[in-house]
Design a protein around this nucleic acid. Structure first.
Lengths: 112, 112
DNA sequence: AACACATATGAATAGAAATTCATATTTATA
DNA sequence: TATAAATATGAATTTCTATTCATATGTGTT
């Protein structure tokens, strides 16, 4: 999921897209993003809010951090994760629009 | 990959995001999108251009169609697939920007 | 209606990514 | 410096998705 290394090894530039998408193709990661959208928080806080085991979060946060969708800073013993809103929020908004515009209609069409 | 049915069964609205991303998290699908960006074409034409087996393309095109990323129309024996540029091109552009702005710097940081 | 061309479909398998769980590392504090 | 708290890591396993390949379906032509 960390595509930086891939790029370095001379892989096609197109790879970045599907690696980026792959990184987000997961319910937990979307839940994390949704939570961090409200406010930054630590791993244990996330664990509590999302009722999710800690190492699972650490793994997910690692790959989100890998492609800079989240940032982290140390605060005492805690590591505070925050959302890089600049990229992901516009994308989610485009998807919302897409759903409204294309998917409801298409859905009916498919049911026929 | 077809999330319409999921929505119908009362799943959370958040699912749509990761299902959408999941649908794009694949090299072949990005290649298809890249090709259809140039011009619409049939499955066999795609097969030729991308040096890819036909049923593989049909499967990929099916899921891309499911979430309205591509459209299709019948023309004689052929089915002509075209890209719904409205959604995907802006998203790819955002990802490009993201890479340039965040990933190169971050990449260096990770290597230390 | 038989045929060929074009595409779709289904089921088995292969492949990739997420999860789990035990343990290591990091950070602050007594 | 020993300890506790917070997080990260690795490897085994499970779960999910893509691929493969054989075959079915659809479309136009003779």
């Amino acid at each position: 999921m960390c595509y930086h290394s891939l790029n370095d090894r001379g892989y096609s530039n197109m790879n970045k897209y599907y690696l980026f998408f792959g990184n987000l193709a997961n319910k937990l990661k979307i839940d994390i993003i949704t939570e961090l959208k409200k406010s930054p928080c630590s791993v244990l806080e996330l664990s509590d809010k999302l009722k999710t085991e800690q190492s699972k979060l650490s793994h997910s946060l690692h790959s989100l951090r890998c492609c800079s969708i989240v940032n982290v800073k140390q605060e005492g013993k805690k590591r505070i994760y925050s959302l890089n809103k600049e990229t992901i929020l516009p994308i989610l908004k485009i998807i919302d629009k897409h759903e409204n515009k294309f998917c409801k209609k298409h859905c009916r069409a498919l049911k026929k």
